[in-house]
């Protein structure tokens, strides 16, 4: 029964990883940018949510209504001012610049918020759970996060394939020059894609803050898990990312079941095995 429990919790944890991976996947799919500060922005969102929750006395989930739009604006500005400029220099520059941003954010947050860890007060969400059997219960929060991940992926997929703006984003991603010729302001469209990606980063950061405690140095590991979910699932496939997140979550939960210190390493080993045996991922479908 312990093993079944581990698998169930692992699947739900996979929803959180997929939520983290959405923004990474979108930024790479549209702008060919790997944002190495992805995890640190998520941690920043968690701190922002903490300020909103304690300042305005709103429940945890409501903080998303303030933090996500703020992050969308931040994403647009970061894309237009920093990432676009780096893209114009060279692809390598975007890696150097986002890595630099990551270190600046981590140490800036360390100075601003100290190294103490915090967690978001999730109240009834954290404590409450469905009891499926005496040994197996599913927390409200992890169910909500999983459902949010599924809804977000379905929504993004629908938006990119059907909505006029989604089609413009795909056009700009496929061929920026041709998109510009037919009248698309590519830089603006890239900014919008980054805004959407950053809004998902905010959601992931809030979910993470509700799940577990966070500190200024928590970002890189979030980036790594998101990246592993993307590669296991297959680069470019949003549904594959969900599957990759689930596989990673289950591997970590089962690993932790074997030995409490083995969870994260088990996830890395599954990732490396996929890279060695099936480098294009388990679920190869094009995003656009």
């Amino acid at each position: 029964m312990q093993w079944v429990n581990a698998i169930v919790q692992g699947i739900l944890l996979g929803g959180l990883y997929a939520l983290f991976a959405c923004g990474l996947s979108l930024m790479f799919g549209v702008m060919r940018v790997v944002n190495l500060a992805h995890g640190d922005f998520a941690v920043l969102a968690a701190y922002l949510a903490l300020a909103v929750i304690t300042g305005l006395h709103v429940p945890m989930l409501w903080s998303a209504l303030i933090v996500a739009p703020l992050f969308a604006g931040l994403g647009y500005v970061v894309q237009r001012v920093i990432i676009q400029r780096s893209l114009d220099v060279s692809p390598v520059t975007t890696l150097l610049v986002t890595f630099g941003l990551s270190i600046v954010l981590q140490n800036g947050m360390l100075e601003a918020f100290s190294a103490n860890s915090h967690s978001l007060p999730s109240g009834v969400l954290a404590a409450g759970s469905f009891r499926l059997s005496p040994q197996l219960s599913v927390g409200y929060l992890s169910l909500i996060v999983f459902a949010a991940a599924v809804a977000l992926i379905a929504g993004l997929q629908l938006f990119l394939s059907r909505a006029p703006l989604g089609r413009r984003i795909r056009a700009a991603a496929d061929d920026p020059e041709a998109a510009a010729i037919v009248g698309t302001d590519v830089r603006h469209v890239f900014g919008i894609a980054a805004a959407i990606a950053f809004a998902t980063v905010a959601l992931a950061g809030i979910a993470f803050g509700g799940y577990s405690s966070f500190d200024p140095a928590a970002g890189p590991q979030r980036l790594i898990f998101a990246f592993e979910a993307v590669v296991i699932g297959g680069i470019g496939s949003l549904w594959g990312t969900l599957l990759g997140g689930i596989i990673l979550g289950v591997a970590q939960a089962l690993g932790a079941q074997v030995d409490s210190g083995f969870g994260v390493l088990a996830g890395h080993l599954v990732f490396l095995a996929v890279l060695a045996l099936r480098p294009s991922g388990l679920f190869r479908v094009r995003l656009t």
């Binding site: 940018v33 790997v34 890696l95 790594i224 990246f227 590669v231 680069i235 890279l275």
Partner: peptide, 9 residues
């Protein structure tokens, strides 16, 4: 682009 994070893992 992904080589960077791969080496990190």
């Amino acid at each position: 682009e992904y080589f960077a994070i791969g080496t990190w893992v």
